[in-house]
Structure formats: C-alpha cells, structure tokens
Amino acid sequence: MPYRPSKKKYLYLVFVSAALIVLHYTKLSAPVEIFLRSIVTPTLSSLTTFSINVGDRYQVFKNREEFVAAYQACLATAARQAADTTAAALLAQENNELRQLLAWHKKQPVPMVVANVIGKELLTTGQKVLIDQGVKAGLAVDQPVITQEGVLVGKILKVEPDIATVRLINDNQSKMSAVIFNRDRSLGAVEGGYGISLRMNLIPRDEPVRIGDQVVSSGLEGTIPRGLIIGTVAVIENEPYKPFQQAVLTPATDLSKLTVVSALLTR
C-alpha cells in the first residue's frame, strides 16, 4: 500500500504560497526582497564576470594561418574604420555649420543611466539580462538599452526598485522597427530567434538590400530614438512567392558578453 500524504500538507503549502504572492503584490515583502537581492547580487555579478572570462577562452585559433588571417582582417577593418571616422568628423562639422546657418534647434541629448549587467534571467528560456539599476534611478518599461558604443542591445522589460530586466534584441519575444541603410532606407521589423539569430522581416521585395548594409532603429517606436545601431545584414532571403524579403542580421555587439550598459531615459 503506497504512502498517501494527507491533504492538509498540500493545503498548508498552497496557503503559504498564496500568502507570499499577496505579500509581494501588496509591496509588504519589498524590504525583504530588496535585502535578499542585495545578498545574492554580488554572487551573480561575480558569476557573470567569470562566465564571460570562460567564454573568452573558448575563442582560440586552430592554427597559425587562421590567426594571421584574423589579424589581417582586423587590420583591414581598422584602416577602413579610420577612414570612416575622418569622413564622419568632416560630415559632422559640415552638418553643424549648416544647422547654424539655418538656425536649427539644437537637439536635447537624451539623459541616460549607466548600469552593470549582474546576470542572466534564471527561470525562462528567453534572452534577458539583469542590470543593477531600477525605478530609483528613473528606469521604466520599454526604455532602450545601449552599450557604451551606442549599439542597441534591448529594451527594459520589468523594473523593480533596485534592479531591472532587459529583454535583448535576440530574444524570441523581441520585436522592433528598424531601417536598413541602403538606397531606399528600407523599413522592416527586427525579431529575435532564441538567442541564436536576429532576423529582419517585412522588408519590401522591390528594395535592393546588400550583405553588409547597416541596420539601425527607425525611430517609429516612441521610446526608441532613430539611428541606434542594431547590426549588419549577413544573409538575404528573397523568395519569389513571398510578399516580403527577410534578412538574417549579425548583431553589432556580442550580446552574451555584456558587462556595462546604459538605459536611455526616453519616458
């Protein structure tokens, strides 16, 4: 005869669980939660740094030729970027002069909050990270999160007084409006794919897209300013029987190795 536990034991469990949930939503347990988080956060932060360091060690070269090829590619990219930087500086100067001539209103810089990435979300299967700033620092849901280089990495999904969860752009629930820097400035929707890929859908079929074209935020969403870098086009899928073309993107930054980010206080 198997052992049958009494129903009372289950009822107590249901009661305690319900009480904890009620205490959370009535904010009565907030001090305890903040205290517990403050204890665990340093450990999570150390683990994040450790995991990024271990991840770096995975990137080894198989042979000398591979290393030399990567080094030469790096030199070529650096030379191209140096030329681009000079051109961009000249354009910025010209742009400023033209703005002054037109008496253009100066854009107010968006205030931002710098935050440390303290870890990944533990329960769900999505691509989300935790940062060590929350409501107290002015963070709100849907604000964009960028890296120090101005690359868009995600949006704020949930805020607590002391921490916030950021949904990364490669999360399977992430969707945002974007523009390709091609001749037509094609609009589309960038969606994540389980942390493996980044896809851009709904690109009009008749607008030519090339591999290497840069993709930036469109500014159509109220909280995300235009021009934040998302990535570059790696693969184009233009099927004759589909009304739109798709592109697979390479993110502009390694989303698994984020350590410091900034939230733009656009709300």
Binding site: I21, E121, L123, T124, G126, K128, L157
Partner: peptide, 9 residues
C-alpha cells in the same frame, strides 16, 4: 523569482 521578468508567482 526575485531575478525573473515573469509576473511574480
């Protein structure tokens, strides 16, 4: 749950 984005509980 303290470090999750899903609604608490």
């Amino acid at each position: 749950e303290l470090f999750s984005s899903a609604p608490f509980g």
